[in-house]
Design a protein around this nucleic acid. Structure first.
Length: 133
RNA sequence: GCGGAUGGCCGGAUGGCCGCGGGGCCGCAAUGUCCCGAGGAAAGUCCGGACUCCACAAGGCAACGGUGCCGGGUAACGCCCGGCCGGGGAAACCCGAGGGAAAGCGCCACAGAGAACAGUCCGCCCCGGAUCCGUCCGGGGCAAGGGUGAAACGGUGGGGCAAGAGCCCACCGCGGGCCUGGCAACAGGACCGGCACGGCAAGCCCCACCGGGAGCAAUGCCGAAUAGGGAUCUCGUGCGGGGCAGCAGUGCCGCGCAGGGCCGCCUUGGCCCGAGAUCCGGGUUGGCAGCUAGAGCCUGUCGGUAACGGCAGGCCCAGAGGAAUGGUCAUCCAGGGGGCAUCCGUGCCCCCGGACAGAAUCCGGCUUACAGGCCAUCCGCGCAU
RNA sequence: GGCCCCGUGGCUCAAUCGGAUAGAGCAAUCCCCUCCUAAGGGAUAGGUUGCAGGUUCGAAUCCUGCCGGGGCCG
């Protein structure tokens, strides 16, 4: 692809906010104190970052599972499904400058059909964004 | 064909769409493109190493921990292979921390006369006496039988005897040296002894062998940051001489010499000049290296019963750093359940549904978890030939 | 990732070098006392000694392997 012709795809990638993964424990703790919404397949925590924290154009997202979910294999599988669903949904309806934390639930996160899991995340985000207004 | 034993292997496949980690190439960069990307246990962290840091002068001794039939394999091992002995099984085969109890100490509850050294509760026999003829008393001999116990001082049979006893004999067991076979553990044989030697060493211990400590959050480099500190307590032995106070005993303050502390202990020797303990204060974050080519894997061949080793050829097989190796859909392959049809061989349709489990410096083992399936060898039974 | 420690009734702890029955306090249940409650007195039940093997005549204790819980590091 030549950089001279500005097609629609180029504009889309330029406008689309960048996704970044949370790694710091402190970021998880701040998100845990913010708003949360529990759905059958997952739990979502969301907060708008303070202006001085990080690049306000990026969406940051973290994934976590407690040991209640199962052994290492079960926890990793749950986090991978959460990653996949976040990649499908967040670039579309996620808000730049926000942090999201997706938490796996025992059994349900691994067993729930993918379409339903995706729907859970969309519904949770609508609710959380609505409360923010 | 059925039942069993042992060893080894696999542990979903293919494709579409969307993604992740590392490396190479083109490039200022983004993008692009190619290659690679979990396991037999990656697990438990139970052993053994590699590697790194710390400690380390030599010799002797002690302490602590571990291993434990014999031989071999290996870098090493508590692992593996082969053999021996003991036990289990009809067999294939399986199981065994399997050195020493005449070096010493300790323990063996309850029961029982007696629990390690011999001994006699009931009992057996002889003699003498008494007698109500049932037996009792005294002396002596004996250890077979009974009883207790987890375990009772060789076992069985015969002879012998008043009754008995390795008292004598045969076989078995045990002990001793000898001979033969074997590298050895050990096995076999004849001879001698006449039984003396209970168990526990996963109780202390003895013998032989092995072992310095810590661990990749080790460690090194770069950068940032900051003090390189403070307080209290205990111990600071002895001798000589000096100064000050005091009438004096003595007290206080310097000095010198023996020395003091540490190196497990000792001898020779070395290092330091206060040592030890407790508390407070400061700091505890980022990047790079270590980091993956190795006791490596595959094939063939030779040596060896085997574990394994030699040689030749080929191959490159994860390197993340809060942690990638995936998500989803379809078809197929195993598996389970149900329905219909049936020539009982099976065919069609629907539903469920994929064992245990995720590298974290790296190897060699052990142990534990594991749906289902495949292969090979062997044993027993049945049928056919 | 690595290195240590600990598991005994519901809770907190005992049990000599292995010896037979695993004991004590609190809590629980029942009874007595009181007008009632508490306190007090009496009685009762409650344990696969975390699990599984082994050594021994005999294991809470000794040995091995699992399971669960806790702590430390840079």
């Amino acid at each position: 692809m030549s950089g001279k012709t500005p097609g629609a795809a180029d504009i889309a990638t330029a406008v689309e906010p960048r996704l970044q993964t949370l790694t710091e424990r402190a970021d998880f703790l701040r998100a845990a104190r913010a708003r949360r919404k529990a759905m059958p397949g997952l739990v979502v925590q969301a907060r708008r970052r303070a202006p001085d924290e990080a690049d306000s154009a990026t969406i940051r997202v973290g994934f976590t599972c407690s040991k209640k979910v199962g052994n290492a294999v079960a926890r990793n599988r749950a986090k991978r499904r959460l990653r996949a669903v976040a990649r499908a949904v967040l670039p579309e309806i996620g808000k730049p400058g926000w942090d999201y934390v997706l938490i796996g639930r025992a059994g349900a996160t691994a067993a729930r059909p993918f379409i339903a899991l995706e729907g859970d995340l969309r519904a949770a985000l609508d609710k959380l964004h609505g409360e923010g207004r």
